[in-house]
Design a protein around this nucleic acid. Structure first.
Lengths: 199, 199
DNA sequence: TTGTCATATGACAGTATTGTCATATGCGGT
DNA sequence: ACCGCATATGACAATACTGTCATATGACAA
């Protein structure tokens, strides 16, 4: 948590520091990210930084919480439009929300891409698929099975893990090009859809 | 390439240094790996290291080439037994060779796991699916289509990318537990198989 | 004007890294 | 016994990083 002094700062200065941090964390892994670089880019003295934040971890959490909040907001918004679709479509759509953010704030998604490769458990936990979310999607699969869209024997958890993993990695490698991502994921999803469909 | 002085060393000492490097690269990413740590663990003075190798990259290439050669050897051996299987089975089997190595030399697979997350392009290129391999597997898919095992409209390249990606990531997250890996990959492969099968 | 207090600042200590280099060592041949 | 050469060695320079701390600054209140 940033110190009180940070919140006492004029908002413009808060933003300058935040943006400098975003810039650094979107190009360097957490462990490689340099406070020196951030203060230089924000144009504040090194000493001041430690007046605002306890340490690098403090800043990192601050930045990531702000970003994940934005992603969640977009996800929520998109969720509504798809509430009647099959489980796979809904899940894939939720993942695609990141792509939407990519057009307005590409640095945010770059942070996701870079930091999700960090092995430090402290960083890792920000990028794990929440068990709670997973359970919700499994429920959707149950509904699909009852509807007769999906075969009874399909391992829903495996499908979810698969799609999550494919999406994350595809996004990581293809990165900025939202169209290419969508196209590739469609190819993957087609195969999976055919694999779980009731014939 | 190691310098001549390295190869002039008694083999036991060469091995000691190699093992020390394996130890370091199996626990630290390339950029974080420390020559200091390696020479300490090998029990040689820092100056000597630079007598044997030009720099860290030199050592890294040496270690990785040795390891990939071993993996390839196991792959070749396993290939033969599966030459009549369908493309997916053969490809999955080839990937599983890593698992076999895992039981005899778990450090080697740990290197694969850790270093494949490195963003440095110099490191990255060691872990890319070779285009040449990919083409070979696509040919196998063509055969499967002719045999009537696989639907004509299936995008073979997508299937390969998918399986490669899933395998790599599953191995990375599950890691040491070969059984769990196999089980998980079977769940994934079942879905894909059903997705590409000719009904 | 003076005093107080939050904040600003950059020098500093401590630590780690890589690659170089001058010198020491020891072995093989003469 | 001696010489020369390949190799062994650790001190060193250069660099980068984090977090701390004593002091400077400037705003506001009395």
């Amino acid at each position: 948590m940033p110190k009180e002094t940070f919140y006492n700062l004029p908002e413009s200065k808060q933003k300058t520091i935040f943006e400098a941090a975003v810039q650094e964390f979107s190009t360097q892994r957490y462990s490689d990210a340099s406070i020196n670089q951030i203060v230089k880019s924000a144009g504040i003295p090194r000493g001041s930084f430690y007046q605002y934040f306890n340490d690098k971890a403090d800043l990192f959490v601050f930045v990531l919480e702000k970003i994940t909040a934005e992603i969640k907001a977009i996800e929520q918004k998109n969720m509504a439009d798809y509430s009647d679709c099959d489980a796979l479509t809904q899940f894939a759509n939720r993942l695609a929300s990141t792509i939407e953010l990519n057009s307005s704030r590409p640095e945010y998604t770059r942070i996701t891409m870079i930091q999700s490769k960090e092995s430090d458990p402290f960083v890792k936990k920000f990028f794990e698929l929440q068990e709670e979310h997973k359970r919700a999607v499994i429920k959707l699969f149950e509904r699909d099975k009852q509807r007769g869209l999906v075969r009874e024997d399909v391992d829903a958890a495996a499908v979810i893990d698969m799609v999550y993993l494919l999406s994350k990695e595809t996004f990581y490698t293809i990165g900025s090009d939202g169209n290419a991502y969508q196209k590739r994921m469609e190819a993957f999803l087609k195969i999976i859809r055919d694999g779980i469909r009731r014939s």
